[in-house]
Computed example of a mutant assay.
Amino acid sequence: MGFHTKSPDRITQEEEANIGVENQPRATTSTALDRSQILKTRNWWICIFVCSGLVAAGRVLSTLLLNFYFIQIRRNVCDDPKRFRGTWLQSLVQNAAFPSTAFLLLLWRSSFSTQRETSTPCYSSFGKLFLLYISLGVLFVAYSQLYAIGRTHSLFFFWIFTSQLIFTSIFTTIINKQKFNRWIILSMCTGLGITSSGDAYIPCENNEGSRMSNGAWCSFFGTVAFSLSLCIMQLGFQKVIPTTESRVSAVMLMQTNASMIATLICLVGLFVSGEFKDIKEDLETFKKGKQLYVWSLIGLSLAWQVMSLGLVGLVCLASSLFSNVVSFCAIPLANILLVLAFRFMDADVKYFKEGALVAGILGFASYVYSLYKSTKKKEIASQSETTRV
């Protein structure tokens, strides 16, 4: 009839061949993508719980060692004239353990780095990275110094300290475009209820009104600086940190550089203020001896660095708000261990602390459940896109 036709049998054979050639790679690719996604999700959850453990361990150890240090140098005595000194030393110790993180960074890169990770980022990003680390270093100094002053001067330090969650939620909404759901709000509400403390460094009620007022304002601005630092970290991971860096390297690099800048600023403040002269006196009057004085400061610095590393890791993996929630949820555990170690509080207050621990666990679980739901939605979306392709 003028048309060149093929037999039905031949058409069927060719179609079957095409189907075998085209669909087999697609099925294999889909399976490989599913396995890769499952592996990434599993590793992500492992990192989340590891960083949460670092925050909890750092919070507990720093609280115990800080109170041990206060008691041994008689900072818990109301009529001691040294009670209001040593704030720059506290700020210095809080940031001075950055060489340990730098060592871990070098060890990680030498063991697990790839060609893609170690490639040099473009020069246009160096200015942004420098500005990021400088701003974080200044904020580290600001909140560590302001918190040290607020702790020594204000009776309401721990109540003001709780406002971190409020400021973090405000800043992360503006800067990081954080979206809230009922589970996140529930975790924040439980975190706001955790205000108890068994600190040995509670200011005396007979402090001067002006000193108490200054301490309250320092505590307030310290919470603002800390919350802002977390949100700037998240912005840095989203916009500034080179994509050639792995998450582990990026976290350790940020913590190392920001802490190094903060340490240099604290050293300047220590010598300009003249507080370096008090170190020798503290060393001589430390009840447990000079060696334990040195080791307590080293241990305290390492504990703070561990907690900070966990906080930065949670910011990178999840969000600044989740990092702050985990930090708050670890406070009741530290307070209970503090009571057992130093017996600061009565038995009646102990029950309140146990209730705060339960609230902290519920707050952590609520936010983790929110993360679980969001990751499930992403997995379903990626699977549907793969099926369409």
Rank of each mutant, 00 (worst) to 15 (best):
M1C: 02
S7A: 08
D9M: 04
D9N: 07
E16D: 09
P25M: 02
T29P: 00
D34L: 06
I38R: 12
W44F: 10
W45E: 05
I46G: 00
S52M: 15
S62E: 11
T63E: 14
Y69E: 10
F70K: 03
F70N: 11
N76R: 06
C78A: 15
F84V: 04
W88K: 02
L92A: 10
A96H: 01
A97G: 08
S100R: 00
L107P: 00
E117C: 10
T118S: 14
S119Y: 02
Y123D: 04
F126I: 12
K128S: 14
L129F: 05
S135N: 09
G137H: 08
L139A: 11
Y147L: 13
A148Y: 07
I149E: 06
I149C: 04
G150V: 11
R151D: 04
T152M: 11
H153C: 10
H153M: 10
F156C: 01
L165G: 06
F171Q: 06
T172F: 03
N176A: 12
K179S: 12
R182C: 06
I185W: 09
L186E: 04
S187Y: 06
T190N: 03
E208L: 12
C218E: 02
S219W: 07
G222F: 06
S229K: 10
G236P: 07
K239F: 05
V240L: 10
V248A: 14
M254R: 01
T256S: 14
S259N: 15
L264Q: 02
G269T: 09
V272T: 08
V272L: 09
S273K: 05
F276P: 00
K277V: 12
K277F: 11
I279H: 02
D282R: 09
F286K: 02
K290I: 00
Q291T: 14
Q291V: 13
L292H: 09
V294L: 14
W295F: 14
Q305F: 04
G313Y: 01
V315E: 04
A318C: 15
S320L: 01
F322P: 01
V326R: 01
C329N: 05
N335A: 15
V339A: 13
L340C: 08
F344G: 13
K350Y: 13
Y351C: 01
A356D: 12
A356S: 14
A359H: 00
I361F: 13
I361C: 11
Y367A: 13
Y367D: 10
V368R: 03
V368H: 03
Y369L: 09
S370N: 14
I380M: 03
S384G: 00
V389W: 07
